[in-house]
């Protein structure tokens, strides 16, 4: 993109994803009456997901592709598991 470096673009999009994630958690609390456990799991899952994306994209920028894959595995997979658990803990839709 010329003007911005890879890491600047990465952190811009991470900001967007974090904002959307926080809005999602607010939605879960207000519209889906998510309990404290579900909120905790979704917040942890969001944190890990953002971390996994940040790690992996940073690794791609520095041409360390194995580190990028392992980052998704080590941080991304637990993030998905936590988000899945958070989803399961949501009260039924009325």
């Amino acid at each position: 993109m010329g003007v911005f470096s890879g890491i600047e673009i990465l952190f811009f999009f991470l900001g967007v994803i974090t904002t959307l994630g926080v809005l999602g958690i607010i939605y879960l609390k207000q519209k889906r009456q998510a309990g404290p456990l579900s909120l905790f799991l979704s917040a942890s899952g969001l944190f890990l997901l953002v971390f996994a994306l940040a790690w992996s994209m940073s690794s791609i920028i520095e041409h360390e592709h194995q580190a990028a894959n392992m980052g998704l595995l080590f941080f991304g997979l637990p993030a998905i598991l936590l988000l899945g658990m958070a989803w399961k803990k949501l009260p039924e839709k009325r």
Partner: peptide, 12 residues
């Protein structure tokens, strides 16, 4: 792969 993912969350 899946086991490692779960284990890494616990290990952390």
């Amino acid at each position: 792969f899946v086991k490692l993912g779960a284990a890494s969350a616990v290990a952390g």
